[in-house]
């Protein structure tokens, strides 16, 4: 299978994992991460509809109507999994038990504000569990294209869209680079092979500091 850019982003995100990590994989590109986690690691994937230890998608013909993930897909569970009600599921989030929440984004500000749940005048789907995850996970890593469909930067000085949560994002994995959100703003630390600093600067609508040793990501 040829790997697309979204898969490469998911591979980079999978590097964040460790044995026993408790993670939540949001809708969109984050859902691909599980496929790239080393089989030597046991990751406890939380699905906010009430399971810790979500496994791979159920095989065709072996789906269980009572077992889905937060995206509505039929799943399996791994050994060590647990089921719980919705209050417990969000108690787990609110009390800081999610090590990493991987989320998508519409906009991210240089102070780590995240907008990912609605576009005024457009469709209003509702925030689901995104606000809870963005606010309360120990670490929020965003996976997103660097620019939107109109080619406009998603990394900005301030978000214009309604916020999901303030000052919550710590790292951004885009289709061209990896950027840290630091107390001094955005810091470019890694780039995917084939991209350069000038391109990242052009596509970022905020001040961007450049790390001394930029990793070029090659898989």
């Amino acid at each position: 299978m040829a790997l697309g850019m979204k898969d490469l982003m998911a591979m980079r995100a999978a590097e964040e994992m460790w044995d026993g990590a408790v993670v939540n994989l949001g809708f969109g590109i984050p859902q691909r991460i599980a496929s790239f986690v080393s089989s030597e690691l046991t990751i406890f994937t939380h699905a906010e509809n009430g399971v810790l230890g979500a496994g791979a998608r159920a095989e065709i013909g072996k789906e269980d109507k009572d077992l889905i993930d937060a995206g509505g897909e039929p799943i399996t569970v791994i050994p060590g999994a647990s089921f719980f009600d919705s209050a417990d599921s969000f108690a787990l989030i609110r009390s800081g038990k999610i090590d990493i929440s991987f989320l998508g984004a519409l906009e991210i500000s240089e102070t780590g504000d995240l907008a990912n749940w609605m576009i005024p005048g457009g469709s209003i789907p509702g925030m689901g569990g995104a606000m809870d995850l963005a606010r309360h996970a120990k670490k929020v890593i965003v996976l997103t294209t660097h620019t939107n469909k109109r080619g406009e930067p998603k990394l900005k000085k301030c978000c214009d869209l309604p916020l999901t949560a303030t000052s919550c994002v710590s790292r951004i994995i885009t289709d061209i680079a990896v950027i840290e959100v630091t107390p001094d703003g955005f810091l470019l630390t890694e780039m995917f092979d084939g991209h350069d600093v000038r391109e990242v600067l052009e596509k970022t609508d905020a001040a961007l500091k450049i790390a001394d040793n930029i990793r070029i990501i090659q898989y």
């Binding site: 919705s86 209050a87 599921s89 689901g128 569990g129 309360h136 949560a165 303030t166």
Partner: peptide
């Protein structure tokens, strides 16, 4: 927000009229 909704229902079922949360501040 989904967790706030769940907790509001939980509160309704356990005789608590409301609760405090930082979730949603600034939104």
């Amino acid at each position: 927000p989904q967790g706030t909704l769940a907790e509001r229902i939980r509160a309704g079922g356990v005789g608590i009229p409301g609760f405090l949360t930082e979730l949603g501040m600034g939104t």
